[in-house]
Design a protein around this nucleic acid. Structure first.
Lengths: 254, 254
DNA sequence: TCTCCGCTCTGACGCAGGGTCAGAGTCAAG
DNA sequence: CTTGACTCTGACCCTGCGTCAGAGCGGAGA
């Protein structure tokens, strides 16, 4: 049986020598033997065991649990262990998802409002990250529409989210600046077209989603505190509704 | 200005007194003052700051970074910070997703194969969790089909995944046991119906996805090593194809 | 006034999973 | 024999607190 010394063995397994020391110390992986001068000597069987360890670590188990599992050669327990880890990780992912959505919304809100103020930022993040993110808006959408929104969710990469958020901010600013213009004029028409394009980015052209959006934005004054940063000013909403009507485009929320 | 002592202040913010001590020590949140006898005295301004701290911690920043950010009153840096955190968290979520998928597949594989052996388990998890999970199967599906698969991905909760995996295992066993029967017989028809139901669970009835599945399972011998545990035995595939044909159901992969 | 309970302080150790020295010994090639 | 690449052990460091331990305060009841 060929023996490997620490560095070679570590490189084979893709870990550091320090890791081997650590695993030895905690009794997770003791080398097959020692040389006369105290050098650790590993074999291929050790490599197999180390690979098992690393895989179990990969799926999020702690070293202690791994040790216990391997010591009992826990092949029969493996299914249960996997089930538990799956639940644990699923919960983690939900947290992560919420946090990511919160950051996305915060970025959009920030990119619009020149100097960000901490207060609205904290309330926004807290509201979104702590609790149910999407549930409050479910009241506005039919079940099928909500399902179609969910199925489009994976399309919203952080980059796209950011780009669209920035475009919304720019559009809001431009509309603000055009409030004194004629809602049926040429400038207003251009704004309405941009508006409609951005709305379509979210609806994907789905009329059910569009309808829900309309309901939702009509109810903007009643949104939870954390979302008020997203509510467009009534003047803006009025203007764009008129502009959309004049341009013969069905109105979209915003 | 009203003053709070440690416990009351901590309760207001939803943290422990120890946390306050810690934040004081690392210079993240020093109380507005001290009583004559050394008691920490916090004010409402401290509460605001603590809320900012907690929100920044929520999105994954370290205490050191938070301190630096708040010390410079980094309102202007906030957008950059958020962008960075978003990327960091997005990467984390990808890891998590891969790991969850890997666990799901491992559970299914395990629930079929009586005594699990470590070797196929480790190769499976490594293959899936370390690298591109879905890319190898993209070759079998058209772009639209792949897009529809992605859009159905959110439907696959861990629970559903597990249930369907278990049903597949049971079905495989039953088919194995029925290999000597007539593929056109009544028993075979029942199996074909079950098979088709499970396939539909994945395809959602989409013929494009179905077509890709057929291509994919026809190529099973060429799947990467980590997926071989998923390949049905040729006899099983043969039997079920005949049974599906006899039952006048279009064949589904598996 | 004494006592008692509940609060507060500081200091110190522990946790997971190693990273990163420091100081000393070993191995093999030139 | 030297030199450079490894190896060993022991020890401290990191994060973000939890968890004592020992000692001091503050206010209410007896």
């Amino acid at each position: 049986m060929k023996h490997y010394r620490a560095l070679e063995f570590a490189r084979r397994a893709g870990v550091t020598v320090r890791t081997l020391h650590h695993y030895d110390r905690v009794g997770l992986l003791r080398p097959a033997g020692r040389s006369g001068t105290g050098y650790r000597l590993y074999t291929d069987r050790d490599l197999l065991r180390l690979e098992q360890i690393l895989v179990l670590k990969l799926i999020g188990l702690g070293l202690k649990d791994i040790r216990a599992l391997l010591e009992r050669d826990g092949r029969t327990e493996l299914p249960d262990v996997l089930a538990r880890q799956q639940r644990v990780l699923a919960i983690k992912r939900e947290h992560l998802d919420r946090t990511l959505r919160a950051i996305g919304m915060a970025r959009s809100a920030l990119s619009g409002a020149g100097q960000p103020d901490w207060e609205s930022f904290t309330t926004l993040i807290k509201e979104i990250a702590m609790q149910n993110t999407t549930s409050w808006q479910e009241q506005y959408f039919s079940e099928e529409a909500q399902a179609r929104i969910d199925s489009r969710a994976h399309l919203w990469s952080p980059e796209l989210q950011q780009r669209v958020g920035a475009e919304w901010s720019a559009l809001y600013r431009d509309v603000e600046a055009a409030l004194s213009e004629d809602p049926a004029g040429e400038k207003a028409r251009a704004l309405a077209v941009r508006w409609n394009a951005l709305v379509s980015e979210f609806t994907g052209g789905d009329p059910g989603i569009q309808e829900g959006l309309n309901r939702m934005y009509a109810d903007a004054p009643n949104w939870p505190a954390g979302r008020q940063a997203w509510a467009p000013r009534p003047e803006v909403q009025d203007f764009i509704r008129k502009a959309l009507a004049a341009a013969a485009i069905r109105p979209g929320g915003g």
